[in-house]
Design a protein around this nucleic acid. Structure first.
Length: 344
DNA sequence: AACCCGGGGGC
DNA sequence: GCCCCAGGGTT
């Protein structure tokens, strides 16, 4: 059934986009014909990460690996080093894996079919539909949280409406334009970051205010807040002159393949064996409280000045400050190193 | 210090 | 569906 309201929304959103669209480096071609590789890299970086944060990494990444083939030849340590500080490092691993699979099974060409894309590691429903419509110009209902919020607000939905994935898709199918779905999705995202923001949306100046059933009171107390889990960890900054000791984490598991100053697991039970002997000679240097999405990390840092590098009965490497940019390090590891290096 | 933003994957 | 992922941002 033809819906006049959706037609007006489409027209106004697309017009807004023409005049206000963000100038982003992956939006290189026409709106439904973006470079598929640029789309892939940017959309993976934008998973759980906001545009301004991803931008710097995106530019560095594309400069180093300008096309899919070059990325497929890369090694994981270089990709993780590039990703250092961006977080959620399994994205980097999956992106490299996906590039290698595309090289082997798809002749180096990023597949155009949703069914092929969604089989690649790190590519889920959102990213697959984004590539399909942004790069290949096919109709696809792209659903991210901005678009969910938009659909919820325009239709005045509330928590009693039991809105789930299917419902969003159903509404989206009627709302997204048949020939410009990718452009429309990107338009809503820009609109959401500018006008239809989560907090304090600019409803009074919004060009859709007469077509929107949004009621601020409906949105209050939607989510209940989660309690962050607390963990205690100990790290050892072991140094001799300007060199300090780094250990590579096992490639599988959390932060796999990243380097760190050696430490305990998240639940502190006892000091790991190679470091027990430092217990008596080192004093607590610093406690850092480091908060992430779901965790509240209490880290204790011990600085240990060793006389001989052989004192460490553990596998690892000795590096100095100037070597650091060549290694994949998490933000917390960087903080610990910076603190210990600068502290007298 | 207390919130907010946010997609994939494993279960 | 729900939880986790070892971030970054604003107020």
């Amino acid at each position: 059934m033809y819906c006049r309201k959706n037609s007006i929304i489409r027209k106004k959103i697309l017009a807004y986009y023409e005049n206000n669209k963000r100038d982003l480096p992956w939006r290189t071609e026409q709106d439904n014909n973006q470079n598929p590789y640029f789309t892939l890299v940017s959309e993976v970086m934008l998973q759980q990460t906001q545009v301004n944060t991803a931008l710097v990494y995106y530019k560095k990444f594309i400069k180093k690996w300008p096309n899919l083939n070059s990325l497929a030849q890369a090694n994981i340590e270089d990709v993780l080093t590039m990703w250092s500080g961006l977080g959620y490092y399994s994205r980097a691993k999956n992106l490299l894996k996906a590039a290698k699979i595309i090289n082997q099974k798809h002749n180096g060409i990023i597949p155009e079919k949703y069914e092929d894309l969604i089989c690649l590691p790190g590519i889920g429903e959102y990213t697959a539909s984004a590539i399909v419509s942004f790069a290949f110009g096919k109709f696809s209902v792209v659903i991210d949280t901005n678009i969910k919020r938009f659909i919820t607000r325009v239709n005045g939905l509330n928590k009693n409406d039991m809105v789930n994935k299917l419902k969003f898709n159903e509404i989206g199918k009627k709302m997204f334009p048949k020939s410009n779905s990718g452009k429309f999705a990107q338009a809503i995202m820009d609109f959401s970051s500018d006008i239809c923001t989560k907090i304090n949306p600019s409803c009074t100046k919004c060009f859709l205010k007469n077509y929107c059933k949004f009621d601020l009171s409906l949105e209050k107390n939607y989510e209940r807040k989660k309690v962050k889990k607390k963990f205690s960890v100990v790290f050892f900054y072991i140094f001799k002159n300007k060199y300090f000791f780094l250990k590579k984490r096992d490639i599988s598991g959390t932060l796999g393949g990243m380097y760190e100053v050696p430490g305990t697991a998240w639940q502190l039970k006892s000091w790991p064996k190679p470091y027990i002997k430092f217990k008596s000679i080192s004093a607590l240097t610093k406690t850092i409280r480091y908060k992430l999405s779901n965790t509240d990390l209490h880290t204790k840092i011990y600085k240990v000045n060793v006389k001989n590098k052989d004192d460490i009965k553990d596998s690892g490497i000795w590096v100095s400050k100037s070597d650091l940019e060549g290694f994949p390090l998490s933000v917390l590891t960087k903080k610990i190193i910076m603190y210990c290096m600068n502290e007298k």
